Deep mutational scan, measured.
Amino acid sequence: MSIQHFRVALIPFFAAFCLPVFAHPETLVKVKDAEDQLGARVGYIELDLNSGKILESFRPEERFPMMSTFKVLLCGAVLSRVDAGQEQLGRRIHYSQNDLVEYSPVTEKHLTDGMTVRELCSAAITMSDNTAANLLLTTIGGPKELTAFLHNMGDHVTRLDRWEPELNEAIPNDERDTTMPAAMATTLRKLLTGELLTLASRQQLIDWMEADKVAGPLLRSALPAGWFIADKSGAGERGSRGIIAALGPDGKPSRIVVIYTTGSQATMDERNRQIAEIGASLIKHW
């Protein structure tokens, strides 16, 4: 067993022997301040990774656009098919120029040779490549099948209805392509620590998230040296922004954090800054 596999296998073990965790309302004060600064709703939840206990939450059962955070769930569904012998990570998928959609920095470079399922998941999570996500959605049967996968996990809230990039439209009061912070946090925890996926697939999923290259201005910008984070960000229309993450000190994750916002007129930089400040408060009061 590799060191990384050992780390993920012992996530519940280490967490069980940690000192009790206590909620700190100071972080919620910052979440509410972010709402004021952005002029928009902000949803927040913080779960203990081992027990699933909610440590703090704000608007945990209000719907927010998922945006690209759905790509972690998508690759979880792909990995479940791999575990069941219905898919192979090494299978190569070929596609054409007509398949390319807006923001496809990886797939646009491989029109000639195609990409493997493993490479597509890596591109979808680490670079948020939209064509990679659409190609992977095709392998599982489309958005409705991802929703069905989530329902089978016990998540009857999260739903995907459309493809990239239309799913980022974020129309107010439109339930399409949305989740709730509580539902997303619980589902992410199941994917990373539950028995739904094999140990190898859980490790692969967290490795992809740990290698995320496009979430630097968010929670990662607030992390002290030595902290662990595996995350996936999302951005959408109407001032929408979000991030889902597993993080913790001492090089291992111990909490799940989900943050979503929508309806702001603020710039992307300002949305990023507010999420980073929430992260800084979380870490300060850990």
Score class of each variant (00 low, 15 high):
21 V>T: 10
23 A>R: 05
56 E>W: 05
42 V>N: 04
64 F>M: 07
200 A>W: 07
230 A>G: 12
29 V>Y: 04
239 G>E: 01
147 T>Y: 04
159 R>H: 12
226 G>W: 06
139 T>M: 10
155 D>N: 06
54 I>T: 12
179 T>D: 00
23 A>E: 05
168 N>V: 06
204 Q>T: 14
246 A>S: 09
75 C>S: 07
142 G>Q: 04
248 G>K: 02
150 L>I: 13
175 E>Q: 14
12 P>D: 07
43 G>W: 00
173 N>V: 10
177 D>V: 01
203 Q>P: 02
120 L>Y: 02
201 S>D: 02
104 S>L: 01
25 P>C: 09
86 Q>A: 14
71 K>P: 00
101 V>Y: 08
139 T>Y: 07
118 R>K: 11
192 L>Y: 07
241 R>Y: 02
36 D>R: 15
1 M>E: 01
106 V>R: 07
127 M>P: 01
97 Q>T: 13
130 N>P: 01
151 H>P: 04
49 L>D: 02
165 P>E: 06
238 R>Y: 13
10 L>Y: 09
171 I>S: 14
101 V>F: 08
7 R>E: 08
137 L>V: 08
108 E>V: 14
166 E>F: 14
14 F>A: 10
215 A>E: 04
278 I>D: 00
203 Q>G: 13
151 H>V: 12
200 A>R: 13
122 S>R: 12
224 P>R: 06
203 Q>E: 15
256 I>K: 00
106 V>L: 14
141 G>Y: 05
207 D>Y: 14
128 S>L: 00
51 S>C: 05
203 Q>D: 11
103 Y>T: 05
27 T>V: 14
85 G>F: 06
74 L>M: 09
147 T>I: 08
162 R>Q: 08
64 F>D: 00
70 F>W: 08
93 I>E: 05
80 S>C: 09
36 D>V: 14
5 H>D: 09
141 G>A: 06
31 V>M: 08
131 T>Y: 05
124 A>S: 11
171 I>V: 15
220 R>E: 03
144 K>Y: 13
29 V>S: 10
2 S>A: 08
168 N>W: 03
224 P>G: 07
199 L>G: 15
45 I>V: 15
17 F>R: 05
192 L>S: 05
100 L>Q: 05
102 E>T: 12
117 V>L: 11
216 G>A: 11
34 A>P: 02
208 W>I: 03
247 L>A: 05
44 Y>W: 03
144 K>I: 13
88 Q>Y: 13
164 E>V: 00
109 K>Q: 14
101 V>L: 08
9 A>G: 11
85 G>E: 11
83 D>C: 04
10 L>C: 10
182 A>D: 10
9 A>L: 07
148 A>K: 14
59 R>Q: 06
125 I>M: 11
255 R>Q: 03
218 L>W: 02
83 D>V: 03
264 S>M: 06
47 L>F: 06
32 K>E: 10
205 L>F: 05
74 L>R: 00
111 L>M: 13
210 E>I: 15
21 V>M: 05
90 G>W: 11
122 S>I: 13
267 T>Q: 13
57 S>I: 07
259 I>P: 00
267 T>Y: 08
